[in-house]
Amino acid sequence: MLTRRIIPCLDVKDGRTVKGVNFVGLRDAGSALELAAYYSEHGADELVFLDITATVENRGTMVRLVQDVADRISIPFTVGGGIRTKEDVGRLLSAGADKISINSAAVRNPDMISGFARLFGSQCVVLAIDARRNPGMPSGFETIIDGGRTATGRDALLWAQEAERLGAGEVLLTSMDADGTRNGFDVDLTAVISGNIGIPVIASGGAGCEEHFRDILREGKADAALAASVFHFREIGIPELKAYLRSEGIPVRI
């Protein structure tokens, strides 16, 4: 049976992780490479790297990190942040990334999705959607861009459905309401998106305890769940989380 995926997310600046990392046993706790290797050996199904600086000057640094990660780990990983052109995508994929994620730039230029899908295959095009509750929207959720600063007036579900038609292979869905709260993923948001598109959905934002993962994978119908700080701070260990999920009847890879 296809298992549900657990995905740690690493925010990266200059090859270093930026969200607080409190790891015992790593030679260099701030090294994105060391952290990636740790997770791949301790139950993570995939990894996501977000380049939070994403400036032109930093592109070379990210490509080198991607090469190092690809040489070291043997699970799939996605890279996002500042990707705009097919050259950006080509560089990251040939450096060893399995998928790339695009967000605000795709909202401004949806043809980017079909262009990348045609050139590189849908399987490597992840559309990241940041969504916020808005009762004025048909689905009840609005697409937000620019890291939470700009409301687009676009319904999040309609955008996800359009992205699927354009050739996106997966949606990385972050609840701007839940993100950072640790009160749980937004089950309503994820269920309405995941239940109404035909491509996998990774739920993100709000993870605080193991039960939150159960809820988002069961009621939220998420194909995968992503989190950062609860893993980085060792509040939740992935092997323990997976043992719990399996005991709750959710299929996971152990």
Partner: peptide, 30 residues
């Protein structure tokens, strides 16, 4: 969902590639 993406169990293992692999091991598909 399509693509079939993620880790799934493999079984009825035969032939040379799987001599050291346990039944129902997980492999990554896309």
């Amino acid at each position: 969902k399509i693509p079939h993406m993620g880790w799934n169990g493999i079984s009825a293992l035969g032939g040379r590639l799987f001599a050291d692999v346990d039944e129902e091991s997980y492999a990554y598909f896309v």
